Amino acid sequence: MPRKYNAQKKLHVKKGDEVLVIAGNDKGKKGRVLFVYPKKERVLVEGINMRTHHEKPSQDNPQGGRLKREASVHVSNVMVLDPTTGEPTRIGRKRIDEEGGGRWVRYAKASGEIIDK
């Protein structure tokens, strides 16, 4: 469902996170998040959802041909891996106190380990 006023939803994954695919053709595979599309609520994961892309010959690729490329996956189909156990976990947010206020960090609900350093 589209969100009002072009508001972007806060996603539970960020670029560089190690994730597990929990639904779809690549279910059970692990990969690193390469790119996040917050407006579309999709993520690009390394080696997941490979699609054939036809490319014309160019200076960079004089041969052209059919190349395999990652396609985006909906954010609901991936779970972040716990940094301590390597198991998939849900993500929570909490504020940690620092001098001069605090900052919001993501943490693994399974172990309580902070994911954002």
Rank of each mutant, 00 (worst) to 15 (best):
P83A: 07
L11P: 00
T89I: 15
T89H: 03
G92D: 12
G24P: 12
E46Q: 15
S58G: 10
L44F: 09
S76L: 09
K117D: 02
A71H: 11
K68V: 01
E87D: 14
D26W: 00
K39W: 02
E99I: 10
T52K: 04
W104H: 05
V105E: 01
H74Y: 05
D17Q: 06
P38E: 07
G92V: 12
G28H: 00
Q59N: 11
N61V: 01
K40N: 03
K40W: 00
V36N: 03
S76R: 09
E46D: 15
S72D: 09
L44R: 14
P57C: 04
I48L: 04
I48A: 11
N25S: 12
E18H: 13
V80L: 15
V21T: 04
H53W: 13
N6P: 02
K14R: 12
M79P: 03
D116N: 12
P88F: 09
V105S: 01
S76I: 13
K15W: 00
P57A: 05
R32F: 12
V45R: 00
R42H: 07
G102D: 03
P83Y: 01
V36H: 02
V36Q: 03
P83H: 06
G47M: 06
M50F: 02
G47E: 08
G112P: 09
S72R: 01
D97N: 09
K29Y: 13
T52W: 00
Q8V: 13
K94F: 06
I91E: 12
P88C: 09
K9L: 10
E99Y: 04
E55H: 07
S111W: 14
Q59K: 11
K4N: 11
R106D: 07
A7N: 13
M79W: 01
G24T: 15
V75M: 08
I115S: 02
Q8L: 14
N77Q: 15
I22S: 02
L44A: 03
V73S: 08
D97R: 07
K117I: 03
P88I: 10
H12Y: 00
T85E: 09
A7W: 07
H53L: 15
I22Q: 02
V105A: 02
D60Q: 13
L34R: 15
V33F: 00
N6C: 10
P38A: 14
H12V: 05
R51Q: 07
V78N: 03
K4C: 09
M50P: 10
K68G: 06
A110W: 01
E18Q: 11
R32K: 15
D116H: 04
K9T: 14
K10G: 04
G16M: 03
K94H: 09
P83N: 07
V33G: 02
L20M: 10
K15L: 04
N61L: 04
V45G: 04
K14W: 00
H74K: 08
K39F: 05
A108N: 06
E41Y: 08
P2G: 11
W104R: 14
M1Q: 09
V80R: 12
A7C: 09
D60S: 12
R106Y: 05
M1Y: 08
K94C: 07
T89E: 01
N77R: 12
G28V: 05
G101D: 08
R103V: 08
G31Y: 01
H53E: 06
K56P: 10
P38F: 13
F35I: 05
K14S: 06
L11M: 03
M50Y: 04
V45M: 00
S111M: 12
S58A: 04
V75I: 14
N25Q: 08
